[in-house]
Design a protein around this nucleic acid. Structure first.
Lengths: 151, 151
DNA sequence: TCTTTTTATATCGCAAACGATATATTGAAT
DNA sequence: ATTCAATATATCGTTTGCGATATAAAAAGA
């Protein structure tokens, strides 16, 4: 008999992995209409909150590495959604700013959060229980993103 | 002011996406020691539960498409972890079976579930609250993987 | 039987992720 | 001022994911 711990149905990570993929897929038809991918949408969320940020700040906000974010931003720049210009105070930085097209997407995507939000509602996930889910996911993220235990 | 719904901190998907990535990263040092990736580890979990399955069954169990699973299996076959042979009853199928090396990995990875499981424990995720988290994630997965509402 | 449709895999192309490494600029130390 | 270390991006290579499409075999229909 297989060890209980090895059963797929007892694995937290597989659930997170699957839920993440499926929810990203739920975004797909809504975003692809405007030529966007989900990670690109995340970049937009970050820049809509605060425009003109260096690559590093965007990467940190998304808990991604710059080697993931840089090519992503380059693709978005090619699409005319944003521009990257060298920092004035610090010439190492690339400051990323939205173009008019980037801001227009905010209006066009206005309904996306509500549509996707509704798509996950079910018996176990309701407006009442969602905060608890958020708390638990934040706990996991906080634990795993914490600088590994200093001795 | 930005719409409340557009704030990154109010997004379920971003949390799932991040938690999934970070937890997968937690597996990395444990798996790369044996040359495995996390999706490859998932395939092993499936085959340890039931050996000799067609590609399609493995894909369905992992809620992945065969165009993701096929190349993954080909790489694992090249590593000598499993073999793929044509089905006898149905010549379209490829039956995937573990090799001796594939079974040995089960012993070598025996501690992985416990190590990773411990790594996520925190104030909001405990052995007591974990079942509730599982229930909510299962709800989301069930809702999103359900064949879209038949009219 | 012969054609058509469905099913099971596989191939292709592109966009992430991410470890590893390279490059340039800044800041710190001597 | 010079050297050295830290910081900010960028590049490279590999593996996933996944939409789109191709191929082969089985199943269903005429």
């Amino acid at each position: 008999m297989i060890k209980e711990e090895f059963k797929l149905d007892n694995q937290l990570c597989f659930r997170l992995y699957t839920a993440s993929r499926l929810l990203t897929q739920a975004y797909h038809p809504l975003l692809s209409e405007y030529g966007l991918t989900y990670p690109q949408y995340l970049v937009l969320l970050v820049l809509w909150e605060k425009d003109a940020q260096p690559v590093n700040d965007i990467a940190k906000r998304l808990l991604l590495e710059t080697n993931t974010v840089t090519p992503l931003l380059q693709r978005m720049e090619k699409e005319g959604i944003l521009v990257r210009r060298k920092g004035e105070k610090d010439a190492r930085q690339m400051i990323v700013s939205l173009t008019e097209k980037g801001w227009e997407l905010q209006k066009k995507l206005a309904d996306v959060p509500a549509i996707v939000g509704n798509s996950v509602l079910c018996d176990s996930v309701t407006p009442e229980t969602a905060p608890e889910l958020f708390r638990m996911l934040d706990g996991i993220i906080g634990k795993l993103s914490a600088p590994s235990t200093l001795s």
